[in-house]
Simulated assay, not measured.
Amino acid sequence: MGGIDVANGVVGAVLGMLFAVLFQQPLQDAWFRLRRRSRSAIRSLGRREESGPAWSTFSLGPLQTSALVVEGDGEAPIPPETVYVHVLDEEVTLPAAMVPWRDEIAAESERLREEGRTPLWNGQRYAVESFDISRTPLDERPEIHLRLRPTDYYTFLAAQQLDRRLPDGSTPRSAYLDANEPLKAPAFLHCSFAANIAVVTADDMLVVSRRSDRVRMAPGVWNSSVNEGLSRHIDSSGRSAPDLHAVARRGMREELALEPHEYTLELLAFVLDVDKRGWSAHFFARLKELRSQDLQARISRGVADRWEHQAIDYVPFRPAPVVRYLLRDDRVHRWAPLAPALFHLALVHAFSRTLVERVEAQVVRRL
């Protein structure tokens, strides 16, 4: 009997070990799933119906921006032949109550000139009269109609004072803007249109620039690789409308000394800064042969607009490093409003939305 008991004990021990190996982990996983679903079910009992805005600005964890992605998701580039730019003849005019603000800017520029200092250059710009989106009938590609009006830099600076009090006590923001309809605004408040470009080198490094402390708007913040404003004087030949891809190529040449044959260029999205009311065409450019050290050497030999940047970082162009860089303690609150959305869209274009959003969620959870 003693031998039988020992044998039974050994068999029981072996079966117990086998049961533990085969079934313990699945049972634990099932118990974990049951607890999680139970907690979710209990939490959902106290929930009520919720609603949110149809339009919301780009955010990523603690990084909150005023960039509203109006058209484009990053995955499919917008073909240049589906973008129609129309220029209207009549110039933008400020409301009478804001005209003195522009006069102040002109007077400040003249004072700087008389003192032998750098005056404010009153560049010829465009204001956005309207931005309309439709779809082509067969393949449903986006079709963009962008209507522009002539304006200048002084008008832009006057219109940027959105929270300054008007004589009646209101502000341009309260008088002319509706937070529930972010795309609706008079043209004099949309006196800025730029091309912002995410540039990736041949060795897969994302170029990130820091704006100079000398620039009038948003000095010292971290920004896109290239930022180039639309110019009436440069970008419109005769009476023809500007070409947005040509504006982007001009920015690549003036800020990074790059020529069109050295990179590919794709239009990813149109984005509006709902706080400062600036429009942007977001582009992605990949260098064909130049590596990061080659680009740095090229820049060291001189670029046309060197004064616009005070620093350049090179970040490994993969989802996790770029997202961690965006959320760094010394970066997260120092971004130009449109740059984080640009870099997100560039990642989506290169790696797919599913992968990028999964990595973003993982990085945010680990903060």
Rank of each mutant, 00 (worst) to 15 (best):
P167A: 07
A185R: 02
V199I: 04
S174T: 15
L166G: 01
R165A: 13
R165T: 12
N196A: 11
A195N: 09
Y176D: 03
V207C: 15
V199S: 09
L162I: 11
L166R: 08
F193G: 02
P172L: 04
N180F: 00
Y176H: 07
T201M: 09
A175I: 10
H190T: 10
D204V: 03
I197Q: 03
P186A: 03
H190V: 03
M205H: 15
A185E: 06
A187R: 01
R165F: 08
V208W: 13
N196C: 11
R164H: 13
G169D: 05
S212W: 10
V199C: 13
A175T: 13
S212V: 08
V199R: 13
D213E: 13
R165E: 14
L206N: 07
A185S: 06
L206W: 12
P186R: 01
L189Q: 05
V200H: 13
K184D: 04
R210H: 09
A185F: 07
P182R: 03
H190G: 05
S209H: 13
N196W: 00
G169N: 07
D163L: 08
L162T: 06
V207F: 14
S209M: 09
D168E: 08
D204P: 07
S174F: 06
P186M: 02
P172D: 10
R211P: 03
I197N: 02
C191S: 14
R173L: 04
C191I: 03
L177D: 04
Y176G: 04
A187G: 05
T201L: 07
A195P: 00
A202Y: 00
R164L: 14
D168S: 05
G169H: 10
D204E: 14
D213C: 02
L177H: 05
M205P: 02
A179E: 15
S170C: 06
M205T: 00
R165I: 10
E181G: 01
D213R: 11
P182L: 07
D203T: 01
C191Y: 00
D178P: 05
V207M: 14
L189E: 02
R164P: 11
R164W: 14
F188A: 01
D178E: 12
A187D: 11
A194K: 08
S170R: 12
M205K: 14
A198C: 13
N196G: 13
S174L: 08
V208L: 09
V207Y: 15
V208I: 14
A194G: 12
D163R: 11
A198G: 12
P167T: 10
